[in-house]
């Protein structure tokens, strides 16, 4: 860990101002990923701006669009177990609870969750080249041990995945990210927040210099009747997803009125293909239609050796998740993942 100074921010403006004038500064809230990476010498900020005193950003309340506004500094645990989230967005609740551990969820914040960096072994290990950590040094995973790596949207420079569970549900729910920056406030559609690696894998998202996430807006549609988060991992809990699927369905009888499917663990961002979701609109909720959608979703998938299996696994997971959301043969309390974890 390198040498740094610490300050506790008392106002968003001042925090943003300081961050935008110091390229070596970093915001810290929960610290669960930043401090981990600082101990590995992957992140090396010389100034930490603590956000935890900005209690205005820790609230969860209704937004003008009829949805819910999740403060960026609300913890993952407080969000998952918030009565409104449990009632109106059980998909989000279930998804958050499938991630990390109770301790980490008590620390990690909603804003910080979006800022998580990849778990790529090579990114974490300074002894190996990594374009994300050190642009131009090469991608060791491309021809290396890439079991946990991307099968969609990767580039020759980087095949890392983005590890968050929560974001997969946020993608399916079409949340909006509210940010505050030197130029004032703006909103970013969730699909536009994270980016694909392309030529610049060192850049994870579309935040501008100095910008701070202040809240996440959930639209009114919460898919609270038909939803599921299916997470496949190498142990039953406290492990990152090998592949995960968040599904929200609006059904009228057996006919799909609206479908959302987001994949985790397969790309540099939560993976959605709106065109595929559109083909499901008006279709009946049958296994054949689900299989067709899964095939279409994974059409451009590419394996790199150890992760080839994820293509078939993701297809099967999509079909299973769609079935599960249709039938809702899963308990509906917030701990539903306990019983539906395959």
């Amino acid at each position: 860990m390198n040498s740094f100074t610490y300050t506790s921010a008392t106002a968003v403006d001042a925090a943003v101002r300081e961050k935008s004038t110091n390229s070596k500064a970093a915001f810290v809230a929960g610290g669960t990923n930043l401090l981990d990476l600082m101990k590995e010498n992957v992140e090396r900020p010389t100034r930490l701006i603590g956000l935890n005193k900005l209690s205005d950003l820790a609230t969860i309340e209704n937004n003008p669009e009829g949805g819910l506004r999740l403060g960026a500094l609300a913890t993952n645990a407080d969000t998952a177990w918030h009565p409104e989230v449990e009632k109106r967005y059980p998909l989000l609740s279930q998804t958050i609870l499938a991630g990390a551990s109770p301790q980490l969820r008590n620390m990690a914040t909603n804003g910080g969750n979006l800022m998580q960096r990849t778990r790529c072994y090579y990114f974490y290990d300074l002894a190996t080249p990594c374009n994300k950590r050190e642009p131009g040094s090469g991608c060791s995973a491309l021809n290396g041990f890439n079991r946990i790596h991307a099968i969609l949207g990767a580039s020759e420079h980087c095949i890392a995945t983005y590890p968050s569970d929560m974001a997969v549900a946020l993608a399916a729910l079409e949340a909006t990210v509210r940010v505050s920056g030197p130029q004032g406030e703006r909103t970013i559609a969730f699909a536009d927040f994270h980016r694909l690696p392309g030529d610049h894998p060192e850049i994870d998202n579309t935040l501008e210099t100095g910008e701070l996430i202040t809240a996440l807006d959930l639209p009114a549609q919460g898919f609270e009747k038909n939803f599921t988060y299916l997470k496949l991992r190498d142990r039953t809990s406290y492990a990152f997803a090998v592949v995960s699927v968040a599904v929200g369905l609006e059904l009228e009888g057996n006919v799909i009125k609206e479908a959302r499917i987001a994949l985790g663990g397969v790309a540099h961002k939560p993976w959605r293909v709106v065109a595929v979701e559109e083909t499901l609109r008006g279709a009946t909720a049958t296994e054949d239609n689900f299989r067709e959608a899964a095939t279409a979703l994974l059409r451009d998938a590419q394996g790199y050796g150890s992760n080839n299996f994820k293509i078939e696994l993701a297809k099967r997971a999509v079909v299973r998740a769609l079935k599960q959301a249709t039938e809702m043969n899963q308990p509906l309390d917030a701990n539903a993942f306990l019983n539906s974890n395959p």
């Binding site: 610490y6 810290v28 610290g31 401090l35 101990k39 930490l48 301790q103 620390m107």
Partner: peptide, 26 residues
């Protein structure tokens, strides 16, 4: 020392956290 095992769990204001991933000043 990386939030991957839970041995460092303490309670802060009654909530369990990993004490290895937070700074004392925080």
């Amino acid at each position: 020392d990386h939030g991957q095992c839970g041995s460092c769990t303490v309670l802060v204001n009654g909530k369990r956290i990993n004490s290895c991933l937070t700074l004392a000043v925080m």
